[in-house]
Structure formats: structure tokens, C-alpha cells
């Protein structure tokens, strides 16, 4: 079995502070980490490898510093890392990003399963995983909380996915893409051997030519989403507390509410 895990490097939001003057994030000195939801994706891939035997590959699209996220994934037990990096990718929205990642997956060739975290902690769109499945024309199961069964021989996966009022059990053919939620496992810490191995490991680098993308589908030009404005929602004003007799307060409330009718 071959499993591909797609991850993203994000700023550690637990350490991000907001500049009270400009209302923008203070990015300086903020550590970059693997998107927390992707940690569950990595852990699930490593567990599947331990249980069924598999080759695990981690991919990420990002600037040169994203290499450290790949090294951490290797320290956690992933076998191989591919860094998809090119200045031309800058400004890609979720559509362009999922296209680029899908092209990279095509270059990898054969695979059985792609695992993504349910969403990134910075953008919070939850679109890139499902977008990749669309570009690759793959079945997808989003918000997976448990893999019940996976079989390379039978070429199928059975998984439980979270929905608003419970969960669904779905069966899909392989290859398939799943996105995972935090209920699926408890990610481990890296091992010492893993860390030492990851330090020395060679990381494959692919640019736009290597994965053969069409220029007008990547970067700002290939991104249909336009960010018009980013703003902090206005703070809600505190409520009022009225005190008095129930009859009196009821009448006052009715009068107040009528103003809004």
C-alpha cells in the first residue's frame, strides 16, 4: 500500500498576537508548525503503515522554510518527503493550490490513499483536500473519525465520518482521499531515531516544471478567489441588565422590542 499525506506549514496561532494599533497579526518571531489537523493525518498514515505495511509519502506546497515541516513528518515516521516549491506558486488560492498538489500526486504515480487534515488553522477553508480529490477525480470522505477497514486487495476503504448530528459509515473504492478530524487518533511525539534520521534525510524538491502545471492555473493569475478586505469584526457591545418587578420589566421589554419590528 502507498499512502500520501498532504500537509501545510502554518504559524503557531497559540503564539500569535494582534497589533492593537493596526489590527494585523504580529508574525515576527512566531514559530511555524505543522497545521495541527495535519498531525492527525500523519499519525493515521504511520499507524496504517505499522498495521498493514505501507510506503508513506508526505507532500507540502510552500516556501523554502516549509522544509522543516517535512522533516518533522519524517521524524514522526513518514518514509519520504516531497517539497513542492516555486516562486510562481505564490498567491495561489485553494483552487490553484489543490490543482498544484494534484499535479504532484499524479507525478508520484501509483497510490492507494491520500490523507489530509480537515482544514488548516490559518485559512480554515477545508477546501484543499476535497479540491485535490476533484482535480484527481477521486472518491473522497471528509471529516473521517475512524477508518474501520482498509484493504489493498479488495481495493476499498470503510470509514466513519463526522456529520453535524452524528456520524455516517461510508464505503469507497481505492484510491481515495480522506480528510481527518482530531477524534481519529492521538498523535505521537517524534522518536529520537526518527529525529536523527529526519535531520539527514534528503528531501525531494519539485518546481512547476517538474510537476507540469499550466501557467494560467497557478499563482495569483490562476486563483479565482480575490481577497477584497480583511477586517476584525466590530466588538459586540455589552448587554444591559434591567432590574424591577416582572410586570414592569415585561412591559418595558415589549416596548423595546417593538422598536425593531
Amino acid at each position: 500500500m502507498r499512502i500520501i499525506v498532504s500537509i501545510k506549514q502554518v504559524p503557531d496561532t497559540t503564539e500569535v498576537r494582534v497589533d492593537p494599533e493596526t489590527n494585523t497579526l504580529i508574525r515576527e518571531g512566531v514559530e511555524s508548525i505543522i497545521n495541527p489537523f495535519d498531525m492527525y493525518a500523519i499519525e493515521e498514515a504511520v499507524r496504517l503503515k505499522e498495521k498493514h505495511g505501507a510506503e508513506t509519502i508526505v507532500i507540502t506546497m510552500g516556501p523554502p522554510q516549509a522544509e522543516s515541516a517535512l522533516r518533522e513528518a519524517l521524524a514522526l515516521g513518514i518514509d519520504k518527503a516531497i517539497h513542492i516549491t516555486d516562486r510562481a506558486f505564490a498567491g495561489s488560492d485553494t483552487w490553484a493550490t489543490s490543482y498544484i498538489l494534484a499535479q504532484a500526486v499524479k507525478k508520484i504515480g501509483e497510490y492507494d490513499l491520500i490523507i489530509c487534515g480537515k482544514q488548516a488553522s490559518d485559512g480554515d477553508t477545508a477546501q484543499v483536500g476535497p479540491g485535490m480529490a476533484a482535480h484527481l477525480d477521486l472518491p473522497q470522505i471528509a471529516y473521517v473519525k475512524k477508518i474501520e477497514e482498509i484493504s489493498q486487495e479488495k481495493k476499498m476503504i470503510v470509514a466513519e465520518r463526522l456529520v453535524e448530528d452524528g456520524f455516517e459509515t461510508l464505503k469507497a473504492p481505492l484510491p481515495c482521499l480522506i480528510t481527518v478530524v482530531k477524534e481519529i487518533n492521538e498523535p505521537r511525539l517524534p522518536s529520537l531515531r526518527g529525529k536523527m534520521r529526519a535531520k539527514k534525510a534528503e528531501i525531494v524538491k519539485w518546481n512547476k516544471d517538474a510537476i507540469g502545471v499550466e501557467e494560467d492555473k497557478i499563482g495569483l493569475r490562476g486563483s479565482p478567489t480575490q481577497v477584497v478586505k480583511i477586517f476584525t469584526p466590530p466588538q459586540k457591545k455589552g448587554g444591559e441588565i434591567w432590574q424591577g418587578e416582572p410586570e414592569e420589566l415585561g412591559a418595558r421589554l415589549a416596548k423595546e422590542l417593538k422598536k425593531y419590528l
Binding site: 505521537r188 511525539l189 517524534p190 522518536s191 529520537l192 531515531r193 526518527g194
Partner: peptide, 20 residues
């Protein structure tokens, strides 16, 4: 178990006996 998983029991033990 977590110590074991992180290879922390393999410190001080020579590589020929499975240590670090």
C-alpha cells in the same frame, strides 16, 4: 510507553544491543 515509543529507553545502551 511514550518514553519507549520515543526511544528514550535506548539511551546509554550500545547499538549492538539495540540501543542508541
Amino acid at each position: 510507553k511514550i518514553f519507549a515509543q520515543s526511544d528514550l529507553f535506548s539511551l546509554c545502551i550500545p547499538e549492538e544491543y539495540g540501543g542508541m
